[in-house]
Write a protein that binds this DNA or RNA. Structure first.
Length: 447
RNA sequence: GGCCCCAUCGUCUAGCGGUCUAGGACAUCAGGUUUUCAGCCUGAUUACCUGGGUUCGAGUCCCAGUGGGGUCACCA
């Protein structure tokens, strides 16, 4: 009972301020979208502020245009920020903070060669050889105390998490190029920006004791901290990685996923409401958001559910909205008039906008029918169908008049005209396609 | 390997000691609507990791084991 998970409530006293702090190293990661969404909801649920902060303190990893693309993508999802900061424009703040820490004996200058992590290797050296050398220049490292217990209450896990300081290494705070590391910058900025809640990925949990120390030495009110679960790949069961998995939000958008579907899907990967409701728009999510809904176990990213959400949101669209959304996915020369007739026929059938091609491609371009698909009586079927089309007679009468099996007759007709067994309703399709074009396609097969 | 987190259907999850013969959604399967595929409607299959405690009573609390994940940089 003593350690039962406690309900977390937002302190009403101070204003809720959260931030999303990506580094501009490329496109927006699906996990990043989720972190941003939760941070946004956490703030907006309490009429607080959502801050976008670009963490560009590693000059080597900068990617041209990444910040702009990040902003564009966030906007597409409706995640509007109230304030915007760029760390590289705040350099003096960090060096002053580093100086202060050295001055107060909580950090020291180090002149060792930078060591970079190697694949599959780990270092056991916690204490830096320079910590008592009294250098007056170089990189700045944290002077981790001995025998202290470092702990905080994690508002995602709803429990106390702690470390012995004896397991924490003397982390670098200021690099020799004068730029801060994450460890310093995050504390300086969160304090300066009066961030009330830090919501970040689980991968940050192991370095939290470092941050706890920096926050403590810097003084001021430390934000609450919560670590989100990692999204796992359905295939590997490992954390989603850009090397193995498709993880970029922009990529999903290009493949015909709708922002509201992506958002709704990602909402439920690591969070659930008490009543288990699943359909949420962004504003509904903000309204119903509750920190106690956070999940502690890592979820797997299974595309099936995303596809279902996407199909659902496509069906909710009006034909006019769909016409616009389908723009990048239809043939370039497709007329709006024809598109307007086609859309109602495929709306219930596509799961992604990119499915348009496979369901409606035949409207715009003749598909060669694989002869193997036809039934054995296809010639008879097609001859009679052609006759009816040429005469302008109702096709529904043909099977009755000729004693054909209804299903077989229409299937052969379907294949002849569309080249596929899976298509929109064939009568409507013929109307949209034009009876003359339909007749022509049948003739070609009969020849 | 050290440190840390985690553990309910295949997947996302509800469940915060008795109402759990465990509920919902996706997926799967079957039936209905139907000229195909979708969509829609019905129904079905499937889960509390293991072992100890605590308790009148444990999916729910505690411990251990096992399993999974993360992390060990002058990267974030």
């Amino acid at each position: 009972m003593l350690n039962a998970k406690l309900d977390v409530k937002i302190e009403a006293m101070s204003k809720v301020r959260t931030r999303f702090a990506p580094s501009p190293t490329g496109f927006l990661h699906i996990g990043g979208l989720r972190t941003a969404l939760y941070a946004y909801a956490l703030a907006k649920h309490d009429k607080g502020d959502f801050i976008l902060r670009i963490e560009d303190t590693d000059q080597k990893r900068q990617v041209e245009g990444a910040t702009e693309s990040l902003k564009e993508t966030l906007k597409k999802f409706g995640l509007a920020w109230d304030e915007f900061y760029t760390q590289s424009e705040r350099l003096s703040l960090y060096s002053e903070a580093a100086k202060k820490l050295v001055g107060e004996g909580h950090a020291f200058y180090c002149q060792c060669k930078p060591r970079n992590a190697k694949e599959g290797e780990f270092s056991n050296k916690l204490r830096d050889p320079c910590r008592d050398k009294g250098y007056t220049m170089g990189a700045v490292r944290l002077k981790v105390p001995e025998g202290e217990t470092l702990s905080y209450f994690d508002f995602v896990h709803r429990k106390e998490i702690s470390w012995s300081s004896d397991t924490v290494y003397d982390a670098t705070l200021l690099k020799s190029d004068g730029f801060p590391t994450y460890h310093l910058a995050v504390a300086v900025d969160d304090l300066d920006m009066k961030v009330s809640h830090i919501l970040r990925g689980h991968d940050w949990l192991p370095s939290t004791p470092i941050h706890l120390l920096v926050f403590k030495y810097l003084g001021g009110v430390r934000p609450e901290i919560g670590h989100l679960t990692d999204i796992l790949s359905a295939e590997t069961g490992k954390k989603l990685s850009k090397r193995r998995d498709s993880v970029f939000v922009e990529q999903f958008l290009e493949n015909g996923y709708l922002p509201e579907a992506l958002l709704n899907f990602v909402m439920l990967l690591g969070w659930a409401p008490k009543d288990n409701r699943e359909l949420f728009t962004l504003s509904e999510f903000v309204e119903h958001f509750d920190m106690n809904g956070f999940q502690e176990a890592n979820p797997r990213f299974l595309i099936d559910k995303l596809d279902w959400f996407n199909g659902y949101y496509i069906r909710q669209k009006t034909d006019e909205e769909l016409l616009k959304l389908l723009g990048p996915f239809v043939p370039k020369d497709a007329s709006e008039e024809k598109l307007k007739k086609v859309i109602p026929l495929i709306k219930d059938r596509i799961k992604k906008l990119s499915d348009f091609e496979s369901f409606a491609g035949f409207f715009f371009e003749e598909r060669s029918a694989d002869k193997k698909l036809f039934g054995k009586d296809y010639k008879k079927h097609l001859e009679k169908a052609l006759e009816a089309i040429e005469k302008g007679v109702l096709l529904d009468q043909v099977p009755k008049d000729n004693n054909f099996k209804v299903g077989d007759f229409f299937m052969d007709l379907r294949i002849a005209i569309t080249g596929s067994k899976f298509t929109p309703p064939i009568n409507e399709s013929i109307e949209v396609l034009g009876r003359e074009e339909a007749a022509e396609r049948i003739r070609k097969i009969l020849d």
